[in-house]
Design a protein around this nucleic acid. Structure first.
Lengths: 95, 95
DNA sequence: ATAAAGTAGTTTATATTATAAACCAAATAA
DNA sequence: TTATTTGGTTTATAATATAAACTACTTTAT
């Protein structure tokens, strides 16, 4: 009947992050913060969780002298998102 | 960009409950517990929240001698669900 | 009649999660 | 040089989800 919803993606902010990364190849911390309107603290924590889960990879570098954190989705992340959307349909599609 | 997700519906169990009530006119506690596989305690708490929010109405009665709790979705509940699904699309639809 | 087991829930304690506030280190602007 | 801004992280707190324990009864077995 109802498919379980991956708790890692069933979070407004983490879902928004994955939703962005799905279509963008790579995005940095500031870009994600702007797009999601999240606080930096919350974003930092949630990116960490996505990385722990293997759904994204985070690379730390510099843009000139300023620190720069860039994120990409992994294959596991893409697959998790696909499964999450599929599971959602079991709740929202009139079937 | 991303529409906010009503926190009252952004919960696996509450979403499942609303998803059932949308299509069934009325359902009792035991039916909901069976369909959702939730524990009774959790279901009790979440039904209460949905009622507090005005998304469902709960009626207490008896089936013979046994207590019976029946739930129906309200117009507000139906509208909240519609908006929730619409908001979800801003995360999952490739647009 | 009484004890044991089952039904239909509620309450409460605990673990998990989300969030913001406070902080840090470095860069830039006044 | 002392603010202010940028790009974050850590930590404290509030909110949420969940299960375990409990209540109140009914049914069944002895």
């Amino acid at each position: 009947m109802f498919k379980p919803l991956d708790p890692l993606l069933h979070s407004e902010l983490r879902l928004a992050v994955i939703s962005i990364l799905i279509s963008v190849e790579e995005a940095d911390f500031v870009f994600l913060r702007n797009k999601t309107k999240a606080t930096a603290g919350n974003l930092s924590v949630q990116l960490d969780k996505l990385q722990q889960a293997g759904y994204i990879v985070i690379a730390k570098g510099f843009n000139g002298k300023m620190p720069r954190t860039t994120c990409r989705i992994t294959d596991a992340g893409r697959e998790a998102f696909r499964l999450y959307v599929e599971a959602l349909r079991s709740y929202i599609d009139p079937s």
